[in-house]
């Protein structure tokens, strides 16, 4: 498991990606600072929460998770190296889990840390907002990483399909009503953010337990389905 995890980790760390993710983080910090400068003392915390919800959970976390996770198994299929891992007698869950863990290992520090720092800047150091941002972005990272590992296994050009999913489903359809929102990952970490800070966010009114459990369950379910799919896949 450790050997596979290391392999995925090395494959995913590229200069281009580090620059992209670093740029995202710097942008977040800059926006956080700008919010702090422009917001009144009374609504800085609310502005910080709005920023973590609007920029962090809805854009930065899913995009970074998509770039990393969709390529973890997807690139192995595209460059036809999956066979070297697949043909060994190691269990499939090990392959899927290693892919997810490696993606999350990179995605989480590149999203959670800058977003939490940005939230601290924007909110003027509000402890509730900082801890809520830390929890919500971590949960979002876990959920999206798992989902996009599976997406990379199921679809060619998974990056494009993932972007379409994010834009169409997560940004638009899921905002249309409560029913659709229940089927959106975004709702659950947003609910945690809302509950921990007390600020209302659109369609983010799930229970705290659901907010914590659902992203984790999504990730586990995605790994299980990916393992099942690996068992049946045609390998080049």
């Amino acid at each position: 498991m450790l050997a596979l995890y290391r392999l995925f980790l090395r494959r995913q760390v590229t200069t281009g990606r580090l620059l992209l993710f670093g740029g995202f983080g710097l942008l977040g910090l800059a926006v956080g600072l700008a919010i702090n400068r422009s917001a009144n003392a009374g609504d800085a915390s609310e502005a910080g929460v709005g920023f973590v919800y609007g920029f962090g959970i809805s854009l930065m976390v899913p995009v970074i998770a998509l770039v990393l996770s969709s390529s973890s198994l997807g690139e192995l299929i595209e460059d036809e190296t999956l066979v070297y891992l697949w043909h060994r007698p190691a269990p499939r869950w090990m392959l899927a889990s290693a892919a997810w863990m490696a993606s999350a290992t990179i995605a989480l520090p590149f999203t959670v840390l800058p977003l939490t720092a940005s939230a601290a800047l924007a909110s003027g150091g509000d402890q509730e907002v900082i801890w809520a941002s830390l929890a919500a972005t971590t949960l979002a990272g876990i959920g999206y990483s798992g989902l996009f590992v599976l997406l990379g296994l199921l679809f060619r050009k998974s990056l494009i399909w993932g972007l379409i999913y994010l834009v169409v489903w997560e940004l638009f359809v899921s905002k249309a009503g409560d029913g659709a929102a229940r089927l959106s990952i975004n709702t659950y970490p947003s609910s945690v953010l809302s509950r921990l800070t007390g600020f209302e966010l659109p369609l983010a009114d799930r229970a705290m337990a659901a907010g914590v459990i659902v992203p984790v369950v999504v990730a586990i379910a995605a790994v299980v389905v990916a393992s099942w799919r690996l068992d049946r896949i045609d390998v080049a």
């Binding site: 596979l4 392999l7 090395r10 494959r11 036809e80 190296t81 066979v83 070297y84 043909h87």
Partner: peptide, 27 residues
């Protein structure tokens, strides 16, 4: 033991690492 036809290899790994990984996955 399988040697597939395709040219794709783990470009960023050393040869010894690829063979070592195969050994690890074969327990």
């Amino acid at each position: 033991g399988l040697v597939p036809q395709q040219d794709g290899v783990f470009e960023r790994e050393r040869g010894i690492d690829v063979v070592r990984l195969s050994a690890v996955l074969s327990n």
